[in-house]
Amino acid sequence: MWPSRNRTETVTCLACGAERPRTEAREYDKHGDRWDRENKTFEYLCKPCHGELCHLPRDELEDLLVELEAGGRDRDGFLASYLSTVEERYGPLEERER
Results as ranks from 00 to 15, higher is better:
Cys54Lys: 11
Asp74Trp: 06
Tyr82Asn: 03
His55Cys: 08
Arg37Thr: 14
Lys40Thr: 09
Thr41Leu: 13
Ser4Val: 03
Ala80Ile: 01
Asp33Cys: 01
Cys49Pro: 07
Ser84Thr: 13
Ala80Val: 02
Glu94Thr: 06
Arg37Glu: 14
Arg58Asn: 14
Asn39Thr: 03
Trp2Arg: 01
Thr10Leu: 00
Arg73Gln: 11
Asp59Ile: 00
Ala18Arg: 12
Glu62Gln: 12
Leu83Met: 12
Met1Lys: 08
Ala70Ser: 05
Asn6Thr: 13
Tyr90His: 11
Arg98Gly: 09
Arg20Asp: 09
Pro48Cys: 04
Glu94Leu: 14
Cys16Ile: 06
Arg22Gln: 15
Ala18Leu: 06
Cys49Gly: 09
Pro21Arg: 04
Cys13Asn: 03
Asp76Leu: 08
Tyr90Trp: 04
Val66Ala: 14
Cys13Ser: 07
Tyr44Gly: 07
Cys49Phe: 09
Pro48Val: 02
Leu56Asn: 14
Val86Ile: 08
Asp74Leu: 03
Ala25Lys: 03
Tyr28Ser: 10
Val86Lys: 10
Met1Thr: 08
Arg98Thr: 11
Thr8Lys: 08
Lys47Val: 13
Val11Trp: 05
Tyr44Ile: 01
Val66Ser: 04
Asp29Asn: 15
Glu60Pro: 01
Asp36Ala: 11
Leu14Met: 03
Thr41Lys: 15
Asn6Ala: 13
Leu64Glu: 11
Arg20Leu: 03
Leu61Met: 10
Gly91Thr: 03
Pro3Glu: 15
Glu62Leu: 12
Leu53Asp: 11
Glu67Arg: 10
Glu9Pro: 01
Glu9Ile: 07
His31Arg: 10
Asn6Phe: 05
Asp59Leu: 00
Pro57Glu: 14
Leu83Tyr: 11
Glu69Val: 01
Gly77Ile: 04
Tyr44Gln: 07
Gly17Gln: 08
Leu53Asn: 13
Arg34Met: 08
Glu27Met: 11
Asp59Ala: 09
Asp76Ala: 10
His55Thr: 08
Arg37Cys: 01
Arg73Cys: 03
Phe78Leu: 08
Arg26Asn: 14
Cys54Pro: 00
Glu9Ser: 08
Arg73Pro: 10
Pro48Ala: 02
Ser4Trp: 02
Thr12Val: 10
Glu88Met: 09
Thr10Lys: 14
Glu9Tyr: 07
Tyr28Val: 02
Trp35Lys: 13
Gly32Ile: 04
Asn6Met: 07
Trp35Ser: 14
Asp36His: 13
Arg20His: 04
Phe78Trp: 06
Thr10Trp: 13
Leu65Trp: 01
Phe78Ser: 02
Trp2Ala: 07
Cys49Arg: 05
Phe78Glu: 14
Phe42Ala: 12
Thr12Ala: 14
Ala25Glu: 09
Trp35Ala: 02
Ser81Trp: 00
Tyr44Val: 00
Arg96Asn: 10
Cys49Tyr: 06
Leu83Lys: 13
His50Arg: 04
Leu56Arg: 15
Arg58Ile: 02
Cys54Glu: 14
Gly71Leu: 05
Tyr44His: 15
Glu88Lys: 12
Glu94Arg: 13
Pro57Phe: 03
Phe78His: 08
Thr41Asp: 13
Leu53Trp: 12
Leu65Tyr: 05
Thr8Val: 10
Thr85Lys: 05
Asp29Leu: 05
Arg96Ile: 02
Leu53Cys: 15
Cys46Trp: 05
Gly91Asp: 10
Glu43Leu: 04
Arg26Pro: 01
Leu79Cys: 02
Glu52Gln: 15
Asp74Val: 00
